[in-house]
Amino acid sequence: MLPEFKFIYLTSSIEEILGYDLEIHYTNANLPFEIIHPDDLHIQKSKIDKNSDFSKAFCARFKHKDGHYVWIEDFLVPTYNENGDLVSVSGFSRDITERKKLEKMLEEQNKLLEMDVTAEIKANKIMENTLKKQEELLVNISHELKTPLNVISATAQLLEMYYMDDSIINKKDIFIKYFKSIKLNTYRLSKLINNIVDSSKIEAGFFQLNLLNVNIVNVVEEIVMSVTSFVKIKGLNIIFDTDTEEKIIACDPEKIERIMLNLISNATKFSNDNGEIFVNVKDMNEWIEISVEDNGIGIEEKKMDIIFDRFEQADKSLSRNAEGTGIGLSLVKSIALLHGGSINVESEYGKGSKFTVTLPAGAVAKENMIYDRNIKNKDERIRIEFSDVYF
């Protein structure tokens, strides 16, 4: 092969590899670039570059007579003139197509192995984070369970002592106070158990909605009116507003009540004295927006992404200002999603937060008549949801 890409002599082995009668077609002719893979033209050209490293093999793809490409490995020896110019190269070639296929297969297997290793590392990381969360959950729930249980146990022992020395008759006021304490802490236990059970039902897919076509404005307003006295005990003012008097949508009123009580109780817990809570219903035609806004302590920006995660809290310390397991907002999000809606939060640390639930405004053709809102006492449901507010 000359520097001008002309063949001087070709062995029969090349013809066997490519299927061409190259000695007839290409001897003393320009090298047919059309038979070289476009990506390998630079390799072919390097064969007549005097600066090339001829101690290494040249590997390039050539088109076979049948149309497919064949990998050929050339081992070449250069010949130079007295001026140091490259005048010719000679050597031998061999078909390494099968080797290249094996190399490619090995490369793909290595990539798959790397992917498997990466996936395993990620899985281990997820498992590690899950175990860490489970550990935090156990510590948190243990604290949440022990606190009301300790109060109930201590109160029961004290009342028993009064009973044994017949002094309980003279301590009626103290008896009433401790009785309220026991009841409040049983509510706290009920809330914790209800949240854990419902959270597990949602995760298992057994949490169902009982849909009715109701005026969502009335549902939300009734809830606000029902909690007004509880909010005022904390020195707060709650304000309800709406831009429409009637909006019929398909929803589960009890579950909507659960959402509202959770959001309002959170706003109550994390508001300062003399603060205000604003509950607003906004008609968005195809959607309805229900927002609960407070001017309390707010949420740090770095913790905004985790507050809707199960068992996550903006403040994980056991000495935080208000109690809770971190399940409530996760339930609120899940209930909103089950309705085909969503929830988002806006907050500025130190200035307050605004939670907005968006629900579709469609109705159902057939209501679930099994639903009965009078099954549970509404006042008791409110007391359970507000049990960790310390009213």
Rank of each mutant, 00 (worst) to 15 (best):
H37Y: 09
I288R: 01
I169N: 11
P253G: 11
N295W: 03
Q134K: 11
S12M: 06
T27A: 09
D283W: 12
R381A: 09
F391D: 01
T147V: 13
H339A: 03
I8N: 05
D53V: 04
E301Q: 15
V214P: 02
M225H: 10
S330F: 15
E289H: 08
E385P: 01
F92Q: 01
N194F: 10
V281M: 13
S153K: 15
N368G: 03
K146F: 12
F175G: 07
I193G: 06
I382G: 03
I299F: 14
L18N: 03
K282C: 01
A322W: 02
G326E: 02
K302A: 08
I223W: 02
K104Q: 14
S334C: 03
V214H: 04
T268S: 06
T130Q: 12
S342E: 05
D379A: 07
V217K: 10
P3C: 02
G328L: 06
E114L: 14
E257D: 10
L86A: 15
N215G: 07
A60E: 09
A365F: 05
Y371D: 00
S199T: 15
Y80S: 07
K354N: 12
M115A: 14
K65T: 15
F270H: 15
F386Q: 03
R310I: 00
N274P: 05
A267T: 11
D305R: 06
F240T: 02
I248L: 12
L145N: 13
V87M: 06
S167Q: 14
L331S: 06
F33G: 00
A154E: 14
E385K: 14
I384N: 01
L31D: 00
A322E: 04
L212F: 06
L192S: 04
Y26E: 10
D294P: 10
N374Y: 09
Q157Y: 04
I327R: 03
V220M: 08
S55H: 14
S13R: 10
L212A: 12
F270W: 13
G296T: 05
I370Y: 08
L236G: 06
L192A: 10
I121L: 13
S319M: 11
N374S: 15
V281F: 12
S199H: 04
F311M: 13
I35G: 00
K333P: 00
S153C: 08
I196S: 10
V279M: 12
M369D: 06
V77M: 06
Y390K: 13
Y187E: 11
K316W: 07
G84H: 06
M260D: 04
G67E: 11
D165L: 14
A363D: 07
T325Q: 08
I43G: 00
I239C: 05
F175K: 10
I335W: 01
N28F: 14
I36G: 02
I382W: 04
G91T: 09
L184C: 04
I248H: 09
S12K: 11
R310V: 04
K282N: 12
G91A: 05
D283L: 11
V214W: 01
G326I: 09
E293M: 09
L41T: 02
N280G: 01
K378M: 10
E300D: 07
K351W: 05
A57Y: 07
W287M: 04
E222G: 14
N262W: 00
A154L: 08
